[in-house]
């Protein structure tokens, strides 16, 4: 059922736009940009704390201004946060894929970075735009290669989880019977085991490579995926279109893959964005603790750990990967929220 509120909102979207708020937004945007530039470039370190507060205020103004302007241009339904999230994730994926082609300074091998200044502050117009760390390694480079690790681990674990979870969950939910009982018993037992302990045990036993961490996280997610897939399969398998597919000559495997899978996939995928965010944080925490990928391979977690000792006078070594982590997790959650609203059968307008 399409909710009345929804169509009202669409109608509201066609109402004449408010030019005054648009112009105000443009002003705010410009002021915010100027303030950002001034506070980042013109204030030196002596400003200290004040500088960061000013930057935060300036960025807030930029965001609000951009929001008003984008609504002015694209209509009041335009969701700036969502688009910025999508933009950030796309950017991240691009730099992670093409990391080797980018003109980055050495971020891995200390012996190659002997000439580089250590603990250099970020300066967008220098050869180390985001500065260097205690060993002279480039932070931007670390950020890019760290993004690669975060994304591979997040997406990889979720893909494995989805594949296994869907296969098992669909079969259990469709064929029922003994298979379902066995699967339920297994997933329940796995869910009863504290996931953190299981994870720590796995990374302790396995060598900390990207592949192993990915698999360990996937193992944690599989029972949840199986449950989700099974529950959705049960709901859809009762619908008559499944029966009519049988009546029209489809065999069980075809019914599962062509009738049920597309329906079950939507809620499972929309749930996955949130899980990717959780896994990226988990991987960062593990490598912060030295339990996951460690130096010389940069990850956001081990970069934070490395910069932590000089947090007071050189905060950028922690702030840069920290902000990247925050933005990434925030973006995945934001996209996940929207996807759930669109696709989840409980909320969808079907």
């Amino acid at each position: 059922m399409s909710a009345p509120g929804r169509s009202d909102a669409v109608i509201a979207g066609r109402l004449p736009l408010n030019h005054r708020s648009g112009l105000f937004g443009a002003g705010l945007l410009v002021a915010g940009l100027v303030l950002t530039w001034v506070s980042l470039m013109r204030l030196d370190a002596s400003a200290g704390f004040i500088k960061y507060i000013l930057v935060a205020v300036a960025l807030g103004a930029v965001f609000q201004g951009l929001k008003l302007v984008s609504k002015w241009i694209f209509g009041p339904l335009f969701d700036l946060g969502l688009w910025l999230s999508a933009l950030w994730i796309s950017l991240l994926v691009l730099i992670a894929v093409f990391a080797d082609l980018l003109p980055l300074r050495e971020s891995r091998d200390v012996s190659q970075a002997l000439q580089a200044p250590i603990r250099q502050r970020p300066n967008l117009f220098s050869s180390h735009p985001l500065g260097t760390d205690a060993q002279g390694l480039d932070i931007l480079g670390g950020l890019v290669y760290g993004a690669r690790v975060s994304l591979i681990v997040g997406f990889g674990a979720v893909l494995i989880g989805i594949t296994v979870g869907l296969t098992v969950g669909l079969a259990a939910g469709y064929y029922r019977g003994k298979l379902e009982s066995a699967v339920s018993f297994l997933t329940d037992s796995m869910l009863a085991f504290p996931p953190l302990i299981l994870l720590l045990a796995m990374v302790a036993v396995l060598s900390p490579t990207v592949a192993n961490v990915t698999v360990a996280l996937a193992v944690i997610s599989v029972p949840t995926y199986i449950r989700l897939a099974r529950a959705n399969t049960l709901a859809f398998a009762q619908r008559e279109f499944v029966l009519s597919a049988r009546l029209l000559g489809e065999r069980n495997p075809a019914i599962i893959s062509r009738e049920l899978l597309p329906n079950v996939l939507l809620p499972v995928v929309s749930f996955s964005f949130v899980i990717i965010a959780v896994f990226i944080v988990t991987e960062a925490s593990l490598s912060f603790l030295g339990l996951s990928i460690s130096r010389p391979n940069p990850t956001w977690g081990n970069m934070i750990a490395a910069g932590e000792t000089r947090l007071n006078d050189h905060p950028h070594a922690v702030a840069v990967p920290g902000v990247a982590l925050f933005l990434t997790v925030f973006s995945f959650n934001r996209i996940g929220d929207r996807a759930r609203k669109m696709w989840d059968p409980r909320e969808a307008k079907l």
């Binding site: 597919a245 000559g249 939507l266």
Partner: peptide, 22 residues
Amino acid sequence: RHFWGTEMAMVFQDPMTSLNPV
């Protein structure tokens, strides 16, 4: 499988659930 459809066919109560939404 050849019997259903060509010999006997069925129309269900709720057209909402008897078509695949996707």
